[in-house]
Amino acid sequence: MKSVKFLFLLLLGAFFSSCTHWLIDTETRIQVKNSTNRDIYELSVISPGKRIVLVPDTLKVDESSNVHVISWVGKFKFAIFVKNLPDSVYLGEYELKGGSIKAEIKGEDMALKMVLK
């Protein structure tokens, strides 16, 4: 019982000393894997009319990107470019919870989705 109280106090202490970022990741380390049937490049976060590239790597089929450290934690809309297509393909809205993430891009042709692990 005492240990629970101690743990509780410790958590409370961590909260009120403004140091939850020691416990919670405030950055994301992301690696992208291409499991589609085409070459893809520039995984981006998009907003109406704008984009920010998170992973600039060009990935051939079945290739994995380098690990990129990004300060994006939260819920965002993602898109990726497919080779020989003029516009990017919308992937959907995904939540990045921080920490290490492997993002696998799946699907065929233009119907792509992202699976986060």
Binding site: F15, T20, T26, V45, V73, G74
Partner: peptide, 20 residues
């Protein structure tokens, strides 16, 4: 004023919601 959880006051921008 300190909110202990990053999801409590997530910033809403044109890009989405940023934990913070």
């Amino acid at each position: 004023i300190y909110l202990p959880l990053p999801s409590q006051s997530a910033l809403l921008t044109e890009w989405g919601t940023h934990n913070g």
